[in-house]
Design a protein around this nucleic acid. Structure first.
Length: 261
DNA sequence: CCAATTTGACCACA
DNA sequence: TGTGGTCAAATTGG
């Protein structure tokens, strides 16, 4: 599929029947997303600590700062699920309340809570760029929205689940009633890079084209990059075997996952 | 002016 | 004691 896409991008439009570059890119993205989720899940299971960090740890207490001892508790790890998406947006309104540098992670983790927290909504999420593919964001959700704020965008691909089924792969289905929304936002996550300025709507189309190109370029770099060459074994899965499957067929379908598992 | 974000301090837990 | 999650004052931006 990557080869097809490359060919398609170097030729004029409408030369390949009904298959569009976007379709191909979407399929490729899905394949790699699935691969990454397998990696992530396995890496979490068999994580081996490596390298340390030099934390300064000079914890001076500022005068006038409130004593917050006992003011909050650690969250439960249940009722959480994970998604991987090229965009941070998921249709809900979130407010960022923190950001942390995570050990052995190249990118910081962002902490967001529902904007309607003070109306009782307990939904929170953590967003972090994926080290192996910074184009994608791994989002971990905690608690469901209890507020009336309904999503305006089709939800992203769900690649992970709660601890009960940590390796479950699947797509969130879009019901018929949501089909209009899906059509409306089908510019969606896959090829588009986040638009920072919504006021530039007139220039949107041409900009989207250039964004899509740069995104595809990133994909091509990623696909060809050493960092995505599975050269080591991780947990119960032979990633070398996975690599062969990807290279040989240019795709990674569910059959292969079933076979591996 | 007010809502959202940033950022260092504080806290729980392994 | 180190790490990650949360708080809240300060800052930013519409």
């Amino acid at each position: 599929m990557a080869t097809k896409l490359q060919t398609l991008l170097h030729k004029p439009v409408k030369d390949h029947g009904t298959v569009s570059a976007e379709d191909l890119a979407l399929k490729i993205l899905t394949s790699f997303t699935q691969s990454l989720s397998v990696l992530t899940a396995s890496a979490q299971i068999s994580a081996v600590d490596g390298g340390g960090s030099d934390s300064s740890g000079g914890c001076k207490k500022k005068p006038g700062v409130k004593d917050r001892r006992g003011c909050y508790k650690r969250r439960k790890t249940s009722d959480s699920w994970m998604t991987i998406s090229p965009v941070m947006e998921d249709g809900y309104a979130w407010r960022k309340y923190g950001q942390k540098v995570i050990l052995n992670s190249e990118y910081p983790r962002c902490y967001l809570r529902c904007t309607h927290k003070y109306e009782g909504c307990k939904a929170t999420k953590q967003v972090q760029r994926i080290k192996e593919n910074p184009v994608l964001y791994q989002t971990t959700y905690f608690n469901h929205h209890t507020c009336t704020d309904t999503p305006i965008r089709a939800p992203p691909l769900i690649v992970g689940s709660d601890p009960v089924e940590p390796n479950l792969l699947g797509f969130q289905t879009i019901t018929q009633s949501k089909q209009d929304d899906h059509d409306k936002y089908s510019t969606n996550p896959i090829l588009m890079i986040k638009k920072e300025d919504q006021s530039k709507e007139e220039a949107q189309i041409s900009e989207d084209v250039s964004d899509a190109k740069s995104s595809v370029d990133l994909w091509q770099e990623f696909i060809g990059s050493e960092s995505f060459g599975f050269q080591y074994s991780c947990g119960p899965i032979s990633l070398h075997e996975l690599d062969m499957d990807v290279n040989q067929f240019g795709d990674l379908d569910t059959f292969h996952f079933d076979e591996i598992y």
